Computed example of a mutant assay.
Amino acid sequence: MTAPPLDLDGVLTFVRVADLGSFTRAAEALATSQAAISLRLKRLEDRLGTRLLDRTPRHVAVTRQGAQFLPAARRLLEAHDSALAEVAGTVPARLSLGISDHVAGPDLPALLRRLGLDGAGLVTEVRIVASRDLATAFDVPGEGGYDAVILRTEAASGHDGTVLAEERLGWFAAPDFPAPHAGEPLRLAGLAGPCNVRGAATRVLDTAGLPWTEVFVGGGVLAVGAAVTAGLAVAALAPSTAPPGAMEVGARLGLPELPRTWIVLRARRLDGRAAQALRALAAAYRNPGGR
């Protein structure tokens, strides 16, 4: 007797939970309930005869068997999407997405790949832009505008968007970055042009009466992170965008506390593949501070 085929909803649910590490985030990404997520996973595990996930109230981890199944599950979903696109013969949907440079972070390429935003049926245009410019551009509809923007702001309300996460900025430097001598200005790295994070950093330093000098201006957070890693300067960054190996040095250098910030999603009404992709990406950015 031929074994029954796998349920694609169950396979998709498993992939989303594995990628997002959370039943709550997976439910948000798939626009369903946690109860439905649990039921789909149980049916898939019963069908495969093995446990794919270990879950506790605070932790979700892929089992050894789940890790073995995950690549095949991704290929199955990709083949399914490709088959539907071939039969339909329709023009792929488009998603024009703007992400703040101080939100994207070094993990953005892996995040986009993991969440299947490169799958069949969707063309995704992603532009990395300063938060201030994104907020202005989103308010101008029409050709060439954004379908959605994810930006960082110092205000938790008043932005007509959905808060995804809350993060306090920190002072990041290489582990061996030396403390300035008495009266010596703090060496800073920051983004070029108007930048809310740079403005917050210089504002708190000026308020505290601490001298500073800008020694490196980068065209993006990755460039600023490179200057930090090279030991050239200190930079105000969100922990999620700090380069690997950098350390929070505010306490060691006696620097003032930086403000809290919020990651905010603003989106137009979307449907179909574009809406699915945006829900998945938004869920990945969520943390307990989001709402």
Score class of each variant (00 low, 15 high):
Trp171Arg: 15
Ala18Val: 02
Glu184Gln: 14
Gly119Val: 02
Pro141Gln: 05
Ala26Glu: 04
Trp171Thr: 15
Ala192Asn: 09
Asp271Ser: 12
Leu6His: 10
Leu95Lys: 10
Leu253Ser: 11
Gly116Asp: 05
His102Asp: 08
Leu20Gln: 13
Ala282Glu: 01
Leu70Ser: 03
Phe14Met: 02
Arg47Phe: 03
Leu258His: 14
Glu257Thr: 14
Leu52Phe: 00
Ser33Pro: 07
Arg43Val: 03
Thr2Ser: 14
Ala135Leu: 12
Pro211Val: 08
Ala156Tyr: 01
Ala79Arg: 12
Thr50Cys: 10
Leu30Ile: 08
Leu255Lys: 14
Val11Thr: 07
Thr50Met: 11
Leu253Tyr: 11
Arg40Ala: 09
Phe172Leu: 10
Val15Lys: 00
Ala173Tyr: 02
Arg64Glu: 07
Arg51Gly: 02
Gly119Pro: 00
Leu70Gln: 01
Gly219His: 12
Gly245His: 09
Ala73Met: 00
Gln65Gly: 00
Ala280Met: 04
Thr13Ile: 09
Phe177Gln: 12
Leu95Ala: 07
Pro4Ala: 15
Ser240Gln: 09
Ala61His: 06
Thr207Lys: 14
Leu12Arg: 04
Ala275Thr: 02
Ala246Pro: 01
Thr153Phe: 04
Leu44Phe: 01
Val60Phe: 02
Val149Asp: 02
Arg127Gln: 12
Ala242Asp: 04
Arg291Glu: 01
Glu28Phe: 06
Ala235Asn: 07
Ala174Leu: 02
Cys195Gln: 02
Leu12Val: 03
Ala67Val: 00
Gly116Glu: 08
Gly190Ile: 04
Leu191Ile: 09
Glu78Val: 05
Glu167Gly: 11
Gly145Val: 03
Ser33Gly: 09
Leu30Asp: 08
Leu111Met: 14
Arg203Gln: 14
Ala242Met: 09
Val129Glu: 15
Ile128Val: 15
Phe216Asp: 06
Leu258Val: 05
Val126Trp: 06
Glu248Leu: 08
Ser33Glu: 06
Asp133Thr: 10
Pro194Thr: 09
Asp147Ala: 11
Ala18Asn: 04
Ala173Ile: 03
Val123Ile: 07
Gln34Gly: 11
Ala208Ser: 04
Thr90Lys: 04
Val129His: 13
Ala235His: 01
Ala282Trp: 00
Leu95Arg: 10
Val129Leu: 15
His159Thr: 02
Thr153Trp: 11
Thr202Val: 13
Leu30Phe: 11
Arg127Met: 06
Gly105Asn: 06
Val197Phe: 03
Leu237Arg: 13
Leu265Phe: 00
Leu12Tyr: 00
Pro5Cys: 13
Ala192Glu: 07
Arg187Tyr: 03
Ala238Lys: 03
Leu186Asp: 07
Pro178His: 05
Ser38Asp: 05
Ser22Asp: 02
Ala148Val: 00
Leu278Arg: 03
Arg203His: 15
Phe177Val: 08
Ser100Glu: 05
